[in-house]
Amino acid sequence: MTALKSSATHKETASQTAGPFVHIGLAPRRAGITGYGEGLGSQIASPEVSGTHITVTGCVFDGTATPVTDILIEVWQADAQGLFAHHGDTEPGFCGWGRVMPDFDTGVFSFRTIKPGAVAVSGGRFMAPHLSLWLVARGINIGLNTRMYFPDEAEANAQDPALGAIDSAARRDTLIARKDSTGYHFDIRLQGDGETVFFDV
């Protein structure tokens, strides 16, 4: 690895919380506003996209184990072949990006997508199938990055560089969803017992 030289002439704009009314800008219909359309990020993959279509449910909890009902999660993921919809070489209907918000009363979220493939990284290695997640809300001063991995990919998970860099098995497990009757379930704990691993991306 070469030295981390930087030619930066400007500093990144400092982050500020998304606040409680983030939906007005990013998901107006959830704010109760009609007239701005469906909102961006409402479909990660359309029903005709090839791959295994899955449902992911879960809940984000704060340090008092209370559901964070005003959380907004952005998902970014590869398609079933492990390709990202970035250079236009994925199927039409696959966006790979979506916005997920829970029920305002229960804090439970649910979204449909396809299971991503493994993603190639340098050195002939692969990352296990995963969803990249970015969480913003009131009380979160800078967006939190985490990943959701799959419980039925034990072999790939064991080879995954990001999971492998986490020493504690208990902490590693915070990134792995569990199977339930509707698909996959993934809870995120912002703080305290079972605190989810967040990455400095």
């Binding site: 704060d62 340090g63 809300a137 009380g139 979160i140 912002l190 605190e195 990455f199």
Partner: peptide, 14 residues
Amino acid sequence: SVTRSPRMPLMPLE
């Protein structure tokens, strides 16, 4: 931010 801030350090990520 008191109850919504992770207390463990962020993990580095390749």
